[in-house]
């Protein structure tokens, strides 16, 4: 098997997630009909042939068989080219890559999911996975924030979760907006206010570095132990299989040994992320 050879996928649907058109979601279906199996938190290398490859966390859940969902922020060569693509275009997919969230370890526990900005992609996958296997997990709390309402991803899912009684959802935006009746303030502040119990619980945090920086002390204050807090790292990647060298943090490769690490693990590594 050639680990550098992608599978071909066809773009089934695209949708702009944010009102500034920088975030676009792609639903991809395999042209040979074989959907891959994966764990929430894993990622894929998406090829735009002629432009190159870039890594993206899988935003769909494993049970969503209509396709793989990715949300792409337009920043560079590959993401720019992806944004120009429409239904019917072919892209390459290598994956699933990386370790994913320890969903088995979470079994029987309460899970607090904390997300900020467009880093909510794999958290969507995780939340849907937990809901799909609802009886295996304790209380599920989701705290999700963005700068303004128009930048929150997956609004349909958020609306569904709000209607359900078996998940506690806290949405927040940085400042007041007309018709916004939910939390106002940064994610760490909302977390402090919501104050989920660390008892029998895990926390998963994904977001921009500044959000993570201020969220971790709040989790510590709430009493979450370092081995009960997980985060997903981003690094520049190429091969995705731990060979090309660049995404190492200490002796570990984010692409292969990560991208999901516990704070306890990260504490022992150089701060190169």
């Amino acid at each position: 098997m050639n680990p550098y050879a992608p599978e071909l996928y066809r773009i089934k649907k695209t949708v702009f997630e944010s009102d500034d058109f920088t975030l676009k979601s792609f639903l991809l279906e395999p042209i040979d009909g074989n959907m891959m199996d994966f764990i929430p938190g894993q990622f894929c290398e998406i090829s735009v042939f002629g432009k190159g490859e870039a890594p993206f966390g899988i935003a769909s859940a494993p049970h969503e068989k209509e396709g793989l969902l990715f949300t792409v922020n337009r920043v560079g060569l590959v993401t720019g080219a992806l944004h120009e693509m429409e239904e019917g275009h072919i892209v390459g997919i290598r994956g699933p890559l990386g370790n994913g969230y320890p969903v088995d370890e979470f079994k029987g526990k309460n899970v607090v999911i904390i997300g900020g900005g467009f880093a909510f992609t794999t958290l969507r996958s995780l939340t849907l996975y937990l809901l799909e296997n609802r009886k295996d997990y304790g209380k599920i709390t989701v705290i999700y924030g963005a700068r303004r309402p128009g930048l929150l991803l997956y609004k349909e899912d958020l609306a569904n979760w709000e209607k359900r009684g078996d998940i506690e959802l806290h949405l927040t935006v940085d400042t007041e907006f007309p018709e916004w009746d939910k939390h106002v303030g940064f994610v760490p502040q909302v977390l402090e206010k919501v104050a989920p119990s660390p008892e029998n619980a895990y926390a998963v945090v994904c977001g921009p570095p500044v959000m993570i920086k201020f969220t971790l002390p709040v989790l510590a204050k709430l009493g979450f132990e370092k081995d009960k807090v997980y985060t997903s790292l981003e690094r520049r990647m190429k091969c995705g299989i731990g060979k090309c060298g660049r995404c190492n943090i200490g002796p570990y490769y984010v692409c292969k040994d990560g991208p999901v690490f516990s704070l306890a693990q990260l504490e022992k590594l150089p701060k190169e992320y």
Partner: peptide
């Protein structure tokens, strides 16, 4: 051994190229 992978694009075709890279 560190390497980079980039695409080289020509009109309607191209190739994926592995080149050395340096830390």
């Amino acid at each position: 051994y560190c390497f980079d992978i980039q695409d080289v694009e020509r009109p309607n075709w191209g190739y994926r190229l592995r080149t050395w890279d340096s830390c």
